[in-house]
Design a protein around this nucleic acid. Structure first.
Lengths: 246, 246
DNA sequence: ATAGTTAGTGTTACTTTAACACTTAATTAA
DNA sequence: TTAATTAAGTGTTAAAGTAACACTAACTAT
């Protein structure tokens, strides 16, 4: 089990994206302080989730640990997208928000290795005891502490690039999902609208989306057929795509 | 100017790719030790180029500094592709190669932030005084020190992904280049063969490759027309490509 | 029963891709 | 000077993919 931090200066930050069937969300830690005498919040303060890397684990293991501690999930899509440094941290020494993180000296939190994770938010119960975490729609995220707005922005760029290249949309959905749900994922992430018939024709060419015999239940309209993603078929058929941009 | 290292544990490693008109190369540092009594090399040892991050610079500035110190070039294509850690470094304490790097304690060199750079190797004179650096064809790279084989492998993957999405091939060529040279870049990096006519038709659609009035000289065949890349036109026309993989 | 809602399905014009061979313009060798 | 050598440069066609477009089917709620 993890013991000592590898290094006080290095952490992983996880941009945990969730999808509730409507919109893309991100999991944030609320570090709002309440003034002891007035009972009013002294200031509100939100951050991404993150932690140190322990000396007996890889960076990736640290990122999975952060995820597991929060969600209890182990098989989550995770992608390292960029590493950030804060050489200008000294300029911020009067910014109170840099001084309370974890009670540690924030000056030491210099390098953060950014991961983004994808998960379906239904039937997830958040588990980080002693922390106040919540889902916030990406479109409604306000000012975050540290440079976390920048990290979130870069995570979104990485997510958009990734989804254009690999079929990762289903990672935001339950195991069985409808094609309309999948289409909505692409529309939300790429901020575009897609034609339903063309989308389904494209899917039909991909062999790794397998129709099941199940249908939606309890919906007040024609129930959609449910599909599953077959990683096995995907790995077999993904054969390098050699098209390129000159 | 850079002064103290930000942190002994963190470095940037630059995978510097070069193209000589024939094959893709990578710049390596030769740390071969010569035995004082016999005059024979005690062992050979190659690494990627890298250095610490200084406390008054960003990660990216550190990477540019490494590049500038070696090549004297400032406007080089540079892309941060992945960050690596070595939690298993203790297992390697009997491996001599981990003990001589820079004369520093190699145990401290734990996290390296990987960048890859692209440049044309003709008329580059290597400038890192006191270091023995050389170009090695990527296909002929043998065993490297530390985990540098892994870093190189990941850099190649990142380069292949990048060139499929953005026109960066010209970064490996002189300012003026022929279409055949550009095609060769794609063939070498993607390990494939491309049809000359189809390649040129694809280019014709892209407006940012501008023909000049100049031609090759001194070649024993029909001289090729030379082209330049227009970043200005590229930025105007790159408009999000919304095609995606389901 | 009917109103409301989302699922599911085909055709066509256009664009892109893939496969394929000969002529041109320079240098070098005879 | 002529011929040999080498890489540059160019067009057509069939197949596949993309984009644009509208109606019927199946379920729930009232």
């Amino acid at each position: 089990m993890p013991s000592r931090p590898l290094n006080d200066y290095i952490s992983v930050d996880c941009v945990i994206f969730g999808y509730n069937g409507q919109e893309l969300q991100v999991l944030l830690v609320d570090r709002t302080l309440t003034n002891n005498s007035t009972g009013q919040p002294e200031f509100t303060d939100l951050t991404l989730t993150g932690n140190h890397i322990y000396e007996d684990e890889t960076i990736e293991q640290a990122a999975y640990r952060v995820l597991f501690d929060l969600t209890g999930l182990k098989n989550v899509f995770l992608d390292q997208f960029k590493t950030f440094a804060h050489p200008d941290r000294l300029k911020k020494e009067n910014d109170r928000r840099w001084l309370i993180h974890d009670g540690r000296d924030p000056d030491k939190r210099i390098v953060s290795i950014g991961y983004f994770a994808l998960l379906a938010t239904q039937n997830i119960t958040l588990e980080w005891k002693g922390r106040n975490v919540k889902w916030v729609p990406v479109s409604e995220v306000g000012e975050l502490a540290f440079d976390h707005n920048q990290i979130l922005e870069e995570a979104l760029i990485a997510l958009r690039n990734k989804i254009k290249q690999e079929p990762i949309g289903f990672e935001l959905l339950p195991e069985k999902f409808s094609l309309t749900q999948l289409q909505n994922i692409y529309e939300v992430i790429l901020s575009t609208e897609l034609d339903k018939r063309n989308f389904r024709k494209k899917i039909a060419r991909m062999k790794y989306l397998i129709p099941t015999d199940e249908k939606q239940t309890g919906v007040a309209h024609k129930p959609a057929r449910l599909y599953v993603f077959s990683r096995e078929v995907y790995e077999k058929t993904k054969k390098e795509l050699f098209d390129f941009t000159v």
